[in-house]
Amino acid sequence: MKKKGVDFLLLLAAGAAVFLLIAGLAWIGVIGEFYLQLISTAGIYIIVSLSLNLITGFTGQLALGHAGFMSIGAYTAAIFVMRLGVPLLPSVLLGGAMSALFGYLIGFPTLRLRGDYLAITTLGFGEIIRVVLNNLEGITGGSAGLKSIPGFSDTGDVMLDAIIKFAWIFVFFAVTVAVISNLVRSSPGRTIVSVREDEIASTSMGNDVARYKMLSFTVSALFAGIGGGLYSALFNYLNPSNFNFLYSVNFVVIAVLGGLGSITGTVLGGLIFTFAQEWLRVLKDFRLVVFGLLLILLMLFWQKGIMGSKELSITRILRRILGLGGKKE
């Protein structure tokens, strides 16, 4: 069998093993339902942070409005499910598509320019979306929020529901990791990285820089929207005030914490970010102070984030363990 085929099977097996391990531990009661929900929340954070990492970490364009794209995906999916009776899967994908459309429209004028324009535009965009959602009362429920959004399943057994939630999010997480890691290793992906390293040099090589920035930004908006669609089904409630500027900053923190330009890093960053806030609950009122301190310490000792721009290759580790003798890349 070709190396690629073996790698694909290895990754599929590794993914299934991780899923079965967590779901199995939950089923026999070792992982509580609450922690499974927390892992699912972390999964959504990771999906959105990975999408941010694509534009900020790999393309080198700072974006500060991913909560806006997420809210577009979330509201689109929720409205398709609730008002039009569309099943969840197409609704989530439509949410992603709608978000990608907005990403394209915003990226079109801004990404032709060089510099930090994207940061300012996305920041403004995130705020505009929030205000629009607040005022489209008939459709979005306005400032009271959108209530009783159907979840992933309703089997009557809360543990089974929690596992189904986790399964959905895990599959989307795996797809996001696969698409983004394959994209950055493809020919357009290499061009995208060259834009980050030096835009002028990349242009002089004959690359259409604006087009590749657009590609990266649209894909980024797509996954942020999909993350939002999953969010609406996980939390069953949407409120525009939740998707504010500080919410966007959470994803920047996760991406920087894990390491800009590292997919493994973002996954670790998302897990640490979500769980650290829970561990620190024992500190009661000082929780947020200590959380800030922890972030400062991490950044002092790992200036480039936990992983820097390195990756942990699952296939390489598995090949070594299984003795398949894959050569170093």
């Binding site: 509580g32 339902e33 609450f34 929900q37 939390f235």
Partner: peptide
Amino acid sequence: SPEKTVNAFNKLVTE
């Protein structure tokens, strides 16, 4: 935050 409320509620109920 509504999002934090959902997690807090799940924690109180299940734990």
